[in-house]
Write a protein that binds this DNA or RNA. Sequence first.
DNA 1: TAGTAAAACACAAACGTTTGTGATGTTGAT
DNA 2: ATCAACATCACAAACGTTTGTGTTTTACTA
Lengths: 328, 328
Amino acid sequence: MAVTIKDIAKQAGVSPATVSRVLSGQAAFYSEKTAKKVKKTAKKLGYQKNTAAVELVTRRSKVIAVIVSSTKTNFSDQIIDGIQQEAGEHDLNVIILYAGEKDPQMERKALETVIERSVMGILLVAVNLNSVNENLLVNANIPYQFLSITLKNRKLPFITSDDFQIGYQATKYLIDKGHSKIGFAAADLDSVTGQLRLDGYHQAMADNGLQLNSAWVCGGDFAYEDGVNAMKQYGREPEVTAVIASSDLAAIGVMNQAQDYGLKIPTDLAVMSVDGTKLCSIVRPQLTSVTQEFFEMGVRGMQQIISQPTKAAKSAFTPFKIIARQSV
Amino acid sequence: MAVTIKDIAKQAGVSPATVSRVLSGQAAFYSEKTAKKVKKTAKKLGYQKNTAAVELVTRRSKVIAVIVSSTKTNFSDQIIDGIQQEAGEHDLNVIILYAGEKDPQMERKALETVIERSVMGILLVAVNLNSVNENLLVNANIPYQFLSITLKNRKLPFITSDDFQIGYQATKYLIDKGHSKIGFAAADLDSVTGQLRLDGYHQAMADNGLQLNSAWVCGGDFAYEDGVNAMKQYGREPEVTAVIASSDLAAIGVMNQAQDYGLKIPTDLAVMSVDGTKLCSIVRPQLTSVTQEFFEMGVRGMQQIISQPTKAAKSAFTPFKIIARQSV
DNA sequence: TAGTAAAACACAAACGTTTGTGATGTTGAT
DNA sequence: ATCAACATCACAAACGTTTGTGTTTTACTA
């Protein structure tokens, strides 16, 4: 069986209490001499602390749980990088759990595993909980923060981009480039995120006195296939001269299908994507995109968690910008 | 403070022992009547089990840790999916930790966090430990398995594709298509994986009586940029008529740079990638690839962990196949 | 009805740490 | 030499479970 602080205590001829204090660096409780002795025998015996015991008595843990929906978009890496960086600076450990795709069962399981362990904080990226799971989370009394999603329940704290503005600015950008028949593709219109972007799109069209056409908006789930399907709906000789796809992958789907139809991008059709991950500069033509600050989302999310419970978690927007590449 | 089994015991008028046995479903230790009563009050009080306490006394945990190097290739999702599926069937929880890119510091931290918690098993995907960390892992007395990597130390159990064969078969495929001047790009030549693929490439060339040219092999780190750089080295009028890139992203780098040089793919240059992730069918032209069975890697890795300590972990190869698309 | 076996439950120790408090030893001033 | 003040350490309780074993209740047999 594993070596405990009692073993160290016995070997070093001190009490377990002293060993504990030395190992956790509580200064002013021991002499340098015993500290050295303790540390040496600890190393010699190959001591590994038992976190279960620690957490049992201290009732807190140094791990941050990130629950991500294994969405088919691919920005979560950046968010996690941000989380990791911020966590590293505070000596926190990050664990990541996949919660499937809109799978309440898996979401529940993920939530339970982290709540049982009473982690220090829970970050949920791009996951939308049903009310049962939402209760589970809220009642757990653990700081939490939603990331990269706009929630119906405005009382829940989330950090994301301003989806209305994304829709608005993307549309305006295309209008400024001379387009007036603009498609809106692949967003999940049942989600608040998708709905807000659509609102922004509508508003921008209206503000510029442009006609709307319901055939120009194609819902979906932000996936590659949704982009393909949208383009199929627009057809070989599309009425629209530009389309806004709600994710990079979806935009690629639009482009590929358009090219299969023999359309040239951006001359025959301009394509604009939302997200701005590395994919945009890897595909040809490179995708002009609404680029979100995912890394910062992660950082800010962590900061919110850390500052609790002093300050309550707040919702916030992270900035975004439009980066021109080749596709419009 | 949180509600414990003692609270439930008091409310239900039974002993904590009984509550424990009811809640963990140890049949034949209680009557149906009390079971019902206990479960009801547990739910009423909103009981959440304290995993720290459980693990402290049982000395085992139901979590599988997956340590992934946040490599810039992108196959780990598939591996994790496989792990998750297999874990789900055995009521195990999986947590994922990022260990940076060849960052011994982060690797150590990740290892320590999971060892301290004495997880049930450790899966390492695409991470290569230095000897210090290797010792840490081995001495922890926790089942472990390396995935998607070939190790120098053959005593460590790893599950991956046969890298020699990947190199050999990819080369042979191109030779069969009529190519005789073949580039080998973006593999990490300091890694066993890269070296084996290179050996396979050499062997296939030799077996077919073809000349080698050291200028045709360009090392790297499996990244997009390495593909770009390799192509830059081959130049505007490359001697090679085909190139094998050691990852999908690298292959895309090769293709993009080749196209920037005005080369047509596959007519002027054939490109073949290794991995076969979804990226292959998303880029244009679609990438012909050596497709690995990453999902199965995850599944098999989990199975190895689960079957321990009955059976010792063994190394094994997962199959791969060549999928023809458009790039050769 | 008495006796007994089985079923249902309770007691208490144990897991490995942290931490409040009390005990001992040391130092220096008077 | 005395004593306060402080530094150094040990004691022991507590965290919330699980589980081996002992105790009570129930049910059944004769």
